[in-house]
Simulated scan of single mutants.
Amino acid sequence: MAERATPLLHRDDPEKAPLVGHVKVTREDWLNVARDILVSDGVSEVKVLAIGARLEVSRSSFYWYFKSRKDLLNALLDDWEARNTAVILRHCAMPADSITQAVCNFFRCFVDERLFDQGLDFAVREWARRDGAVRKRIDLADQKRLGAVTAMFERHGYTPYDADARARILYFMQLGYHALDQTEPMEERLKRLEGYLEGFTGVRPAPEECAAFRAHVAGREG
């Protein structure tokens, strides 16, 4: 996995409106740095003083946006779901002429870190090992994601049983691939695209579908 870049703060983003008055940072800034610490160091290191030091502001700024550290942690979980779960649901619901094209849509979530943040996903899963409430949120998110992948297969004619089994194979394989921290170059992975698609769906993909996916990946890398 590549080293995680320093998060872009609101005040440093030229596309955002400039801050006015005595406001130095925004709620988004606090969340950006908290997320970065969560991924790099774990939830135990997500502390108000540490975040304030990185933002170069006093802790009083924190309380403009959050009631407490617990409130910040809940906001981090909401942010994780809005980022990682929502993107899978959207891509599974995208129109597709075939199941292999639909699986390519699913794959698109994972070839762009701006869509699915794998570091964030596994940081939250590690957090859940020590917090029952977070474990429940992980379980609910996985149910939603699996439901979306299952529905994707069902729309293309698979029985509920087959759709459920194939959805689990596809989803858990994808998460497991990242959990193993594979460093295989994308070029090597793409060489297996046709085999992956046929293995997951039982259907040989059309050449134009594979070409379109490879072009999409090339466009993201470019």
Score class of each variant (00 low, 15 high):
119 G>S: 12
168 R>F: 03
186 M>T: 13
162 D>W: 06
115 L>D: 03
183 T>P: 08
159 T>Y: 10
202 G>Q: 13
169 I>G: 15
148 A>H: 09
168 R>H: 14
138 I>H: 02
173 M>H: 15
193 L>G: 02
156 H>L: 13
198 E>M: 05
183 T>A: 11
115 L>Q: 10
190 L>D: 06
160 P>A: 01
157 G>H: 14
198 E>F: 04
129 R>I: 04
140 L>T: 03
198 E>L: 02
168 R>P: 07
199 G>Q: 11
109 C>L: 02
165 A>H: 10
140 L>S: 04
155 R>K: 01
121 D>T: 05
137 R>Y: 12
112 D>W: 09
134 V>I: 06
143 Q>F: 11
116 F>R: 03
176 G>V: 03
177 Y>S: 13
137 R>H: 10
130 R>M: 15
180 L>M: 14
147 G>F: 05
112 D>E: 15
135 R>Q: 12
198 E>R: 14
120 L>D: 01
122 F>R: 12
119 G>K: 09
138 I>E: 06
174 Q>W: 05
111 V>S: 06
141 A>N: 01
127 W>Q: 06
190 L>C: 02
116 F>A: 08
110 F>H: 13
165 A>M: 15
151 A>R: 01
135 R>L: 07
120 L>H: 10
136 K>N: 07
109 C>K: 06
111 V>R: 03
175 L>S: 12
190 L>V: 12
186 M>P: 02
126 E>A: 13
175 L>G: 07
127 W>N: 03
114 R>E: 09
150 T>S: 14
158 Y>V: 00
187 E>Q: 07
164 D>F: 07
121 D>G: 05
169 I>T: 15
134 V>P: 00
